[in-house]
């Protein structure tokens, strides 16, 4: 046997021995021991305990909120015949607390505040605070959603203090889900608005001792459907306004408004929302200038194109462009108003 063939045989032998060793090792290697019953039960108990703790946590009080900053330009904020545009800002805050009272009933309390400030058109400045101390939401199953709550609002005009008011607004809404992707809902709201310093006037225009109180009611009926990341809704509203200010009967009206809106997700972060609304206001006691018998009516058309861009779970941007025009049988009341704005929102 040559040296070369001896080396080859030796190398071959080493390889075979190594392979044999691996096979023996694998045969002798113990399979990981099966967990004992007590270990299995202990692991399952720990998981069940975690789930029970998570369910308790879910029933605790939850807090959430949003802070928003808007910058906009409006071509005709006074809604007059002379178009004087102005830039405005809006600072707003939304806070919500909620707690599951039962598996199907949730209590919710919210605060919503905003301050609008025009750079030039000071008459348009106002501050509004709305507290909803109680809203109960009942979800008994897949079909019905019922909610009822009370809003307390105070609105303050820095440059028109006489118009400041407090408002009490109870509301109730019922939604019925149909076939998984459709719904229709009805909501009734009753507003009782108490002016803080403005007195009610009699028919001659003289101030009485009683503060002005406005009584308003609104019914909203909405139908909607969703498909492929798209939500389509059509809403109809009926609105009645009455006041103890007999001079203000001039402003009493019946109002009907219909709004069609679409919201479609284009990507995971971007969605667009075009909408159109038509509003008909029939004044009960106001007549057209120069015509003693014809009651005035106003038709307001509004086109809006808005969007949402979600930067992440916290930050989002909402640009919006709206074009509004009012047609009327009272030519002096007609106007056009265009608004462009951008809102940045932080959620927490």
């Amino acid at each position: 046997m040559t040296a070369k063939s001896k080396r080859s045989a030796l190398g071959f032998g080493v390889v075979v021995a190594a392979l044999f060793g691996c096979v023996l090792g694998a045969a002798w290697a113990e399979e990981p021991p099966e967990p004992s019953t007590s270990e299995v039960v202990a692991a399952i108990k720990r998981r069940a305990q975690q789930i029970l703790e998570a369910r308790k946590a879910a029933r605790r009080l939850r807090f959430s909120g949003e802070v928003s900053q808007l910058l906009g330009y409006e071509s005709n904020p006074s809604n007059g015949t002379e178009h004087v545009g102005d830039t405005y800002v809006e600072h707003s805050l939304y806070l919500a607390a909620s707690k599951k009272v039962t598996p199907t009933v949730t209590w919710q309390g919210t605060y919503s505040g905003s301050y609008d400030n025009y750079f030039e058109y000071g008459d348009g400045d106002y501050m509004s605070h709305t507290l909803t101390p109680t809203k109960l939401i009942w979800q008994p199953g897949r079909m019905w959603r019922v909610d009822a709550g009370v809003d307390l609002n105070i609105t303050y005009y820095p440059k028109a203090g006489a118009s400041n008011y407090r408002e009490f607004k109870p509301s109730v809404g019922v939604r019925q889900n149909l076939w998984g992707r459709w719904f229709h809902s009805v909501r009734y709201e009753w507003f009782i608005r108490d002016y803080i310093s403005k007195k009610a006037r009699d028919g001659s225009g003289n101030e009485t001792e009683v503060n002005r109180v406005d009584d308003r009611s609104r019914v909203r009926y909405e139908v909607g459907t969703t498909w492929n990341d798209t939500l389509l809704k059509v809403r109809q509203e009926w609105y009645w306004h009455d006041s103890n200010d007999e001079r203000t009967d001039f402003y009493d009206a019946e109002d009907y408004k219909v709004t069609a809106s679409l919201n479609r997700s284009l990507t995971k972060k971007l969605s667009i929302a075009p909408s159109y609304s038509f509003e008909r206001k029939n004044y009960s006691k106001r007549t057209v200038t120069g015509i003693s018998s014809e009651a005035r009516y106003d038709d307001t058309h509004t086109w809006t194109l808005a969007g949402t861009y979600e930067f992440n779970q916290t930050w989002s941007l909402n640009p919006s462009l709206s074009y509004k025009w009012l047609d009327s049988n009272e030519p002096t009341g007609e106007y056009i108003d265009t608004t462009i704005s951008g809102t940045v929102t932080a959620r927490f």
């Binding site: 598996p103 897949r142 719904f183 949402t308």
Partner: peptide, 22 residues
């Protein structure tokens, strides 16, 4: 079962923040 959501619930929840802006 008591709080089953449908696709319409999810769609309405998705636009809630935007609707507050409106």
């Amino acid at each position: 079962r008591a709080t089953e959501w449908t696709a319409i619930d999810a769609a309405l929840a998705r636009v809630k923040s935007y609707e507050r802006v409106q």
